[in-house]
Nucleic acid binder design. Structure first.
Lengths: 166, 166
DNA sequence: CGTGAAACCGTCGCCCC
DNA sequence: GGGGCGACGGTTTCACG
């Protein structure tokens, strides 16, 4: 399994930075039990190895005026690889689409979208998404309310698994 | 609409910190065109007003050994508010469930889950989720591959909207 | 991995508009 | 009200052991 090249200190660093990405390096070093310079070296190594893809402020979309969140299930006409890639590329270009994942089962993609209001979303839905090449069906579900939105990965599960396998 | 109390500098700050949450304050100040002290004051104000909920490192779940991502659609038996809240509370306690959103339409909730492997997920699915109180139906879809995962909010859309309304 | 030093940054008080 | 200047203390980030 992956992640085996990381020692417990590296995993603690990742967990701490996932919880608070703006933590100072000295605070981080104190929490993981080493001094600042090697701690910073580990962080840089984790970044370059791709374990850390970036750091992002978590902005409140509703407070900013994005009052609509929608999940869209998309079925395509053709599932040939070139056509799948073409659809994915289009999703990357649509700013209202924040996430796009290819699924197994009866539906081909799930999209998470945000919009300032319903009419903006419906314009996008009818003019862009539904009428895009190769799109066969779109089913949308409005988010009534959010109940949980945890960042990233449950490190507790990883630790439990590693200690069980050891 | 919300977000009207933010001037263009505040919005630029949010956009920059969403793109790079570890940017130093002097770099941020340079990019938004003011000096460091007022820039830091604005950031603190945005944090306290709830526009910024936190900062998180974006860790690569697959590289860390979480090779399975699943969307689960959950239908409940009772949609009374107390029962909805009880289910949401349970989702908050399950570490494999990273997101839980209440939806309109035929399904009540959509859950985004991660797990180290399929058997871990299936154990969770059968022993925890499907057999939880008040759960009527669960349909799961495995993520074959991720095509887009943009953080937060499309500020371009916000700016376009504000300039159109002005 | 730790120590020490130098450059940089976050932060405050004060002044300005 | 918000923005800029200067200075102090803490932090980042070297080179070296």
């Amino acid at each position: 399994m992956a992640g085996h090249r990381l020692d417990p200190i590296d995993r603690k660093i990742l967990a701490e930075l996932q919880a608070d990405g703006r933590m100072t390096n000295v605070e981080l070093a104190k929490r993981v039990g080493i001094s600042a310079p090697p701690c910073l070296r580990r962080v840089r190594t984790l970044e370059e190895a791709g374990y850390i893809r970036g750091y992002h402020a978590d902005v409140d979309s509703r407070e900013l005026g994005f009052e609509v969140q929608v999940f869209a299930m998309v079925g395509l006409v053709s599932q040939a690889e070139a056509d799948l890639s073409a659809f994915e590329e289009r999703c990357r270009e649509w700013p209202l689409v924040r996430e796009c994942h290819m699924l197994n089962g009866e539906v081909d993609f799930i999209l998470k979208c945000v919009a300032p209001d319903l009419s903006t979303f419906q314009t996008f839905l009818t003019e862009d998404l539904t009428s895009a090449d190769n799109v066969a069906s779109v089913k949308t579900s409005l988010v009534i309310r959010g109940a949980k939105d945890a960042p990233g990965v449950p490190f507790e599960v990883l630790e439990e698994r590693l200690s069980r396998d050891a």
